[in-house]
């Protein structure tokens, strides 16, 4: 589903040059639930952003759903992103000016979906994450766990084939974290979504199909998780 070939990412600033990713090769088959672990600053978010076509690699090629990504700014890439991908960001990134339901509708705005249909789909997604009673709230009125669930609803509302989640449980307590993890697992099992999740939590990672470890921008392992 996602194929990274010799992907390298170098950040060039005035003072120093940081190699965030060094020659990464990764093949993620359709329907896999993959987790990525590694110490802070090792390049996990960078890797996820490159998979999500919102960051350009310095070298190497990215293929998503069979398509080699060439132009990151084209309309076609924007549409492709809209249809194929759902993002869950490290720090929610909800739009404060919009209500919960409007936030969830966001991906559908950039598609040909009628207003009624949009509302229906957003309500459905919010029901899936157990937030159907908070639709008219604004993000500032929600707890961290609720915000994260809104972010998940937004990621799944367009029924993308790939979900990229950057520490979706990082800001939550373990009960909340487990709940979010359950939602993701359900999406993977019932809807066959391919999921890539960055996490710091070994127990969460163990619930996925495969764990990739990064260290200093380099892939150090990529073994299937042994189910206990």
């Amino acid at each position: 589903m996602i194929h990274l070939q010799n992907v390298t990412k170098v950040y060039q600033t005035k003072v120093i040059e940081t190699t965030a990713l060094h020659n990464i090769n990764l093949e993620i088959p359709d329907g896999e639930f993959l987790s990525i672990m590694g110490p802070s600053g090792c390049g996990k978010s960078t890797l996820l952003n490159i998979m999500g076509m919102i960051d350009e690699p310095t070298a190497g090629s990215v293929t998503v759903a069979g398509q080699l990504i060439r132009d990151y700014h084209s309309k076609a890439t924007a549409r492709f992103r809209n249809e194929q991908l759902g993002f869950i960001f490290q720090s929610f990134h909800l739009i404060n000016e919009l209500s919960v339901i409007d936030n969830v509708e966001l991906p559908l705005i950039y598609r040909r979906v009628s207003g009624k249909q949009r509302r229906r789909m957003a309500e459905e997604a919010l029901t899936q994450v157990g937030l159907s009673n908070r639709m008219k709230h604004f993000p500032a009125q929600l707890s961290g766990g609720q915000k994260q669930r809104v972010a998940i609803a937004r990621a799944i509302v367009g029924q993308p084939r790939i979900i990229l989640a950057d520490e979706p449980t990082g800001n939550l307590d373990s009960a909340m974290g487990n709940e979010v993890m359950d939602i993701l697992t359900r999406l993977n099992q019932e809807q066959g979504a391919t999921i890539v999740m960055v996490t710091h939590d070994e127990t969460m990672a163990r619930k996925t199909h495969r764990l990739v470890r990064l260290f200093d921008g380099q892939q150090v392992s990529g073994n299937p998780v042994k189910t206990i």
Binding site: G52, A78, R81, N82, I95, L106, P107, Y110
Partner: peptide, 16 residues
């Protein structure tokens, strides 16, 4: 900018 980044990540293009 953050809002705009999110919108683009969810499929808005420059013209939108």
């Amino acid at each position: 900018s953050a809002e705009i980044g999110v919108r683009k990540a969810y499929g808005a293009h420059s013209q939108h």
